[in-house]
Design a binder for these strands. Structure first.
Lengths: 393, 393
DNA sequence: CATAAATTAATAAAGTTAATTAATAAATTG
DNA sequence: CAATTTATTAATTAACTTTATTAATTTATG
């Protein structure tokens, strides 16, 4: 591809830019549709068959595409479906969370080739970067030399204020606070030359859902990820919108109302940490939530009321987002078992019917399909998107 | 320009599309900066001087641009600033509101060439379209034949649910309700061949502020227009974002909390109609608000508490929007005198400091600069944008 | 004060890229 | 075998870039 300069619409176009655009367009269409023959690509892109033919040949020779088996049964010459070459591009996705960090090596179709995880009570910079470095070493020994060269970058998903919202005291408190002054990109540059992309964790989850999950179905939607702290992402015009400073979809900061009418934020009323608090109060150890999916059903007595509250808050929050953007859908995912997710979605659907919806176009409420891995997987998308795909924003 | 097909990024590009894009880019840059010499255009667009030269000559011969006086005083050959030709394109903007309708004929630089208004207690389709038709006749007699041919379309700004929120009873109630089934575009086609664009009224206001007011300064912002009912608009990437169904920025539907803790919407707590209610209760005739700007200061006893309440609600609403999109700014305008607007903005700035802003990047609060005319003026922008400008969404 | 030098702007000519259209070949089905 | 669809090649066209030239100034110098 090219130097990536001609990406914004507020720039002049020339031939080189045109070809780059069209290559990205075809790759994006194939990413989205999975597999398409040339004539379909021509129709979808409004480009002529010879142009498609030429671009496909080029991308194939670059190792980005493979041709499938000719499709017979229809009249005429059989068409050859083209698809992304799984091994055409690799990417690394890292999630740094409040309870665990993940390291992913993904292929061009979003398949996970390597997965490493570490859990902790709180993340400390030295440990986390050590974990990352070990992951890179593992990836290096896992791939051949030529495969290694196809790693296109590293995406890092993290909350924007990792150092906030943590009642940490004691010897590690100071080191924990040092996150505040850490520049991820600079830190990574100390042991890798790969380009590094930093993205909000929930926005990364949204990106994964958008490329590999239910998100494809919708043009515009808001995505809630219920983790230790709830967060969100935004999709506009079939593309994740990160915002000017990457803080779009900070849905955890949506206003909420506390039990006695005081002003709160969604993060206080619809996060897993509030369930943790409920459990601690009842004498249970909340860590089982993160280690044992079964525990969610075992603890139904505590989980159900938490789900009820969370659903009401998410319903209100969903409508708030729809007043800003007329979203077609709301997608809800989280760091909980799929059964819990489905239950939550059902409760949100019910809760939304009791709200005042004058002047709004109601969104459909859908569940996400990826779960906890979404954030690291989405992080791995950033380098791929920036180098090979069209990003409509 | 061309058929307008190649507008979306999700379409293939070819040469014709490139030239169209670059022409629109230069027109947009000139719209935004007012007047620029060719070398500046080359720098901003990253196109080469010869390309700029060729495009400028073409646009000038089309009557869309004029060259200003050569700029001397610097070393070297003096540069010739280029600017939009005021008389290159005309457009018609119509606002249909709950208290009045406006008809505007604008030139290419947003100047108002003709302005007609009608006021009413409630809009009825027959009367409104009669008013529009009379406006078109007036425009036709005001312009020469060649000028007439330069009218590029009609924009209509209206609330999306004109028929809602109106406690109308009596003989006209049925006719008023008929708005619900009226298709503006079809209705207009009965007496004009010009292309018709329908846009939400507050979003239109936002568009006007964006092109001709303070909006230029910001990349992303939310715009509140406090009219009989409060509404809003959204700007992303330097372009008004109308949304999939044109209902983005439905800020009047943001959740608000009533005096006794019950759930309300912003439209109930921060609109001029709530001030009207206050005045009626105090025995005043609220119609003076719409006819006499002076009345706002005369009625300060009622206006001030309303401003206080409205400011608190707008502050909360502003933060809600910033949780969805990390807006750089909030712009506030309305159908009130400039003094009132400035006072409101100050109060909002103060109110925002008392809110919980964890996880948010605080926007600056600015006042709009156009006032009541914003909606009709913004409506007139739609045809112009669609035919001559770049629209980054 | 006149002239030369330097700078900036605008345009022209030539060359390059990547699209389109038209023509042709290839592979199937019915 | 005829019709149809797919894929490719060849020729043409559009629109850009680069390089070079001319024009209009301001600044410096004798």
């Amino acid at each position: 591809m090219d130097d990536g300069l001609v990406r914004s619409l507020s720039m002049g176009l020339s031939q080189k830019g045109v070809r780059d655009h069209n290559e990205r367009l075809l790759l994006s269409l194939l990413q989205r549709h999975g597999s398409l023959p040339a004539p379909d690509l021509a129709r979808l892109s409004h480009l002529s068959p010879p142009t498609i033919s030429a671009i496909l040949r080029k991308l194939e020779s670059d190792g980005l595409l493979t041709r499938g088996d000719p499709l017979r049964g229809k009249v005429g010459k059989p068409s050859v479906p083209m698809m992304l070459d799984k091994n055409g591009v690799y990417s690394i996705g890292i999630k740094i969370g409040r309870r665990s960090a993940n390291f992913l090596l993904t292929d061009f179709t979003g398949g996970i080739r390597l997965h490493r995880q570490v859990t902790y009570t709180h993340p400390l910079p030295r440990e986390v970067f050590g974990f990352v470095q070990a992951g890179l070493a593992a990836a290096a020994s896992d791939l051949s030399h030529s495969e290694l060269a196809r790693i296109c970058g590293i995406g890092i998903a993290a909350p924007f204020d990792l150092w906030n919202w943590h009642d940490l005291t004691g010897p590690n408190a100071a080191e924990f606070q040092s996150w505040k002054n850490i520049d991820f990109t600079a830190e990574m540059a100390r042991f890798t030359d790969l380009p590094v992309f930093v993205i909000n964790d929930a926005t990364a989850g949204c990106q994964a859902e958008h490329l590999y999950g239910r998100g494809k179905q919708f043009r515009d939607y808001a995505y809630f990820f219920v983790g230790a702290f709830v967060g969100g992402g935004i999709v506009l015009n079939n593309a994740v919108y990160e915002g000017r400073l990457g803080n779009a979809g900070a849905l955890g900061s949506l206003r909420s109302v506390g039990p006695s009418g005081e002003s709160r934020q969604l993060v206080d009323t619809a996060s897993i940490h509030t369930l943790e608090a409920r459990l601690r109060q009842a004498g249970h150890n909340p860590i089982t939530l993160w280690n044992n999916p079964q525990s969610w059903t075992d603890l139904a007595d505590h989980v159900t009321p938490w789900l009820d509250q969370t659903a009401i808050e998410l319903a209100k929050a969903s409508l708030s987002t729809c007043a800003v953007i007329d979203f077609e859908a709301i997608i809800i995912d989280g760091a909980f078992p799929p059964v819990i997710r489905e239950e939550l979605v059902k409760k949100v659907r019910r809760a939304i019917e009791t709200e005042d919806t004058r002047g709004l176009i109601l969104p459909v409420i859908e569940s996400g399909s990826i779960g906890s891995d979404a954030r690291a997987l989405g992080a791995a998308c950033s380098p791929v998107l920036s180098q090979f795909m069209l990003n409509n924003n």
